[in-house]
Design a protein around this nucleic acid. Sequence first.
DNA 1: TCTGGGGTCCTAGGACCC
DNA 2: TCTGGGGTCCTAGGACCC
Length: 363
Amino acid sequence: MHGKIRAVIHVDMDAFFVSVELKRKKGLRGKPVIVGGDGDPQSRGVVSAASYEARRFGIHSGMALRRAKRLCPGAIFLPVDYALYEEESERFMDILREYTDLVESFGLDEAFVEMRCAPEEDPFEKAITTARKIKERIRCELKLTATVGVAPNKLLAKLATELAKPDGFMVIREEDVERVLRGLPVRKLWGVGEKTEKRLKFLGIQTVGELARTPLLHLVRYFGRAHGTMLHEYSRGVDTSPVVPFHEPNSMSREVTFEKDTRDVYFIKEVLYELTKDVAKRLREEGYRAKTFTIKIRYYDFKTITRSRTVVTPTDSLNDMWTVVAELVDRVDTTQPIRLVGVKASGLEKRGEKGVQKGFNYG
DNA sequence: TCTGGGGTCCTAGGACCC
DNA sequence: TCTGGGGTCCTAGGACCC
């Protein structure tokens, strides 16, 4: 017994931040352009997006700007302009929402789309037709290119765009799944990052096909229940997660890396106060209260610690929050140079909604 | 080489309760 | 005197994603 075949579309904008910048700086087309940090390649920051010309030098997102500069001294570095990309992202999402309300944004430049389908319709054919229209409208109306994937679930739709980039279109049907996954390096699978790739390699597992042949019990033993089960399912192309248009936030945070490491406690407290202020402001703007507060400290050697405290009554008051945060700061070692500090509010509760009554007995 | 900032989810141990 | 099992919450750390 299985449900109706689904068809999920994944849309992924190509080199989004860079492409948006090129719309207002047409002279930079065809050049190695890098968007990241404050635009100064000597500052502490990373690449947020690189043009395909820059990628040819081995530059990719997440790379330190200093290193990118070394790899490609002639590259043009631009500061991140979130407000601009958000605006463009809105236009992108608006196009998608014209076809269905089942649009799940995933960052500014990606989204999953699922069509509602009448019983007599073929969801795959409907999705493919829609996907083509979407790609064309992004090209015409936004003057940007996107890669679009269509597959039976989110996992495979995202994999399709990954394989078809840039400016691509790829369909993975149920009958293609085994063939597509078999020879793929495990790193291409959603949820397999650097660490998991290393551990799998150590176990002699390099391809998704090999992963699929590994017994579930084996994987659970090595990676824990959740992760092991996930690896087992994903290696077979199995993913039942729905397209969810809206997620309630679980946390709100602000953090900042200093240009130079510091041991100045007063300075650290000042910065944390500003970050706390920002988080408090956001909580109030969006109508949440939080009951757990966490500070994060990253030392010069990248060792990172967190200290948190949960209060009984959720709050959005700066005074309450700062009282907790200041107390947490006193619990950390400030004799070693610090490169980053952060503040996080979690355990969020929508303002006006009382917490669920504890011990209430239904039925 | 030298590693952002904003998130998500999971694990593991201890406290506490029934 | 010794021994349960299940559940939830809290804290700290870690992997992963864009």
